[in-house]
Computed example of a mutant assay.
Amino acid sequence: MNDTLSNAISIRKVDINYYVDLILKDEKIQKDIVDLTLNHPHIMTYYHGYYILDQATKLKPEIFYKYWDEFSSLLKHENTYHRQIGIVLLSNLSNIDIDDKFSECINDYLNCLYDNKILIGKYCVMYLKNIFKSKPKHRHQIIDELLNHKRKTPYTEKQEALLEFYVLELIEENYQELKNKEEINKYIIEKQESISPKAKKKCKELIKKYKLS
């Protein structure tokens, strides 16, 4: 590992933008940042590496596609933050997944919806919004998993309600393209009884917006 780089990015007020610019231009530093993010034991090193990669993969996802398999392996990592990193980076790369690698890891990705940590379940729903747009062949499987999440949920009622808000956001962003409108509308109407104020408010907006009864 690059110990000099590790020390540099682990400081509290690291200049993330500087390193984002650097790894977009320097392939050696790019490889080192990926290595440190995936394998370094110190949280300030790998978490700042994650911040750098998150921004960089949004700006130029195509130059990070070669790391897809390494990022995918994080979905089953024992460390919670590494699972989060995998969820986010794969979502960022899904728009340029020319080899359809997501099909190989979709089950691992969706399994994160039922992670023992609610943080991971939340991130999975949030970042599925991007994948939903970029992977139309998987939309039916994704929306079916989300609409029926409560049947298999490991979370408390309050935690589940938090996820419902993000599911409703995904529905709103893609409503016109969704085919199973009857099931979608039923979900929206049912979530009027959600204990989440945000989910309840979103339901009211969608019922009015789509003239649901």
Rank of each mutant, 00 (worst) to 15 (best):
M1L: 09
N2H: 01
N2D: 03
T4G: 14
L5R: 03
L5T: 09
I9E: 04
D15I: 01
D15A: 02
D15V: 00
Y18P: 11
Y19S: 00
D21H: 14
I23G: 00
I23R: 00
K25E: 03
D26Q: 05
E27L: 08
D32S: 07
D32M: 05
D32V: 11
V34P: 00
T37H: 01
T37V: 03
L38Y: 01
L38H: 05
N39S: 12
H40I: 06
P41E: 05
I43Y: 15
T45Q: 08
Y46Q: 03
G49Q: 04
G49T: 10
Y51H: 13
Y51W: 14
Y51S: 12
L53K: 02
D54Q: 09
D54W: 09
K60R: 06
K60A: 11
P61V: 08
P61S: 00
E62N: 08
F64M: 08
Y65M: 08
K66I: 05
K66L: 05
Y67I: 14
Y67K: 07
D69A: 11
F71R: 03
S72F: 05
L75T: 07
H77S: 04
N79F: 10
N79I: 11
Y81I: 15
H82T: 09
H82E: 04
H82D: 04
Q84M: 11
Q84F: 14
I87P: 14
I87G: 05
V88M: 07
L90I: 10
N92W: 08
N92A: 11
L93R: 00
N95G: 09
N95F: 09
I96R: 00
D97N: 02
D97M: 00
K101L: 07
F102L: 04
F102Q: 02
F102Y: 04
E104G: 09
I106L: 04
L110M: 11
L110F: 13
N111Q: 15
N111Y: 07
N111M: 10
Y114K: 12
D115E: 02
N116F: 15
K117E: 02
I118V: 09
V125K: 01
K129P: 13
N130R: 12
N130L: 14
S134A: 07
K135I: 06
K135S: 04
P136C: 00
H138G: 10
H138A: 10
R139H: 03
H140T: 15
I143Q: 03
I143W: 03
L147E: 01
K150Q: 06
K150E: 08
R151D: 14
R151G: 15
R151W: 10
K152H: 07
T153R: 04
P154K: 11
Q159T: 11
Q159P: 13
Q159H: 05
A161T: 02
L163P: 12
F165N: 09
Y166R: 09
I171T: 07
E173W: 13
Y175M: 07
Y175N: 06
Y175K: 06
E177S: 13
L178T: 08
N180D: 07
K181E: 00
E182A: 05
E183F: 01
E183C: 00
E183H: 07
I184H: 02
Y187K: 05
I189F: 07
E190D: 15
Q192A: 15
Q192N: 14
Q192G: 13
S194N: 01
P197Y: 08
K201L: 12
C203R: 03
E205I: 11
Y210P: 10
Y210N: 03
Y210W: 01
K211M: 12
K211T: 14
K211E: 12
